[in-house]
Amino acid sequence: MILLRFLNCHLQKVFSPKNQLKSSLFLHAGLHKKTFSGICESNDTVKDQLEHYIALFRTAYIPEPESSAELITAHAMGKKMIHEVDFSTPVTKILRSRLKEMCSKRLERVPVQYILGEWDFHDLTLEMRPPVLIPRPETEELASHVLSHWDRGYHTFLDIGCGTGAISIYLLKQLPLVKAVAIDISEQACNLTQNNAVRHGVHHRLKVVHGDIMQEGTVAELCKNGPYNVIVSNPPYITTEEMKHLDTEVFKYEDHNALAGGVDGLHVINQILKIAHQLLCPGHGSLWLEVGLTQTRAIQSAIEDHPDLGLVYRNAFQDFTKRDRFAHLGVNGLRGHV
């Protein structure tokens, strides 16, 4: 209901002249019903529109109101960032309606990336489509770590839970002689990865598999394509308890299959650890995981407690907040390939 009210008021404001924008929202909506006749003759500039939406988002308690409004405005003008936009441009009818449409989605807490339909991962622009998980800045770091530890002799990798395909496509772009397999439980994610791979011209080197790594059949299929030099994964790692406190953007719009990692958040991670030694090249394969803040320690102890996993814990890497975020594991040389 509250949401509806905001939406309503915002619709009216779009059609109101610019000099009254600064007046209080509700008061304004009530006072100027006359001007809201459908035909708009105001000489708004992009800047006025931007300020209007920032104010609107702020009153509606939308997270990151400035950044949201700026990105939407820039996108509507065919640019990426707000600093590329000329603020003094007058607003055309088409632009106005595009802004209105996109901002009304934002008022429903749709993540900006889904509204724009695209987002950047390193220097790539990838298509984003709900409910496929939007790559986070941490995942960019994960991809960088994998790349900086890439051995010249490596020629293949596996991406478990590829989502938008960000990690795979970035690595394939950077490593032109490498082939990869990407797997996701969600069919939508698989399609999106395929689309993005085509968009960046790496689809010839990327095989997208739709399947669940909990199933033995899927693991067998992956084995058939393997063994892999590297496994990289950004698995779901949020605990059931933490799932309750997620932001609306994440909870309502993103795929829970890509987020929820069971009671301890390690459900999928444990399965990856279990199958890793079958998939990795014996002797020198390595496994990269992005995990929750306390989970690197859990992984370390799991590996130390279960030598039968055939893995060794190499080290943890920190994210930009200087907290342990990435786990780097290797194949135990003592145990042969099964």
Binding site: E64, E66, S67, S68, L71, P111, V112, Q113, L133, I134, R136, P137, E138, N234, P236, Y237, I238, E242, L246, D247, E249, V250, E254, A258, L259, E290, G292, L293, D319, F320, T321, R323, R325
Partner: peptide
């Protein structure tokens, strides 16, 4: 000393930010 918008909180998959 690197400060990004998402410096506090659990980070990672938990939050989705656009302020880069």
């Amino acid at each position: 000393e690197i400060t990004a918008c998402k410096s506090s909180g659990p980070g990672g998959q938990h939050v989705n930010t656009t302020d880069s």
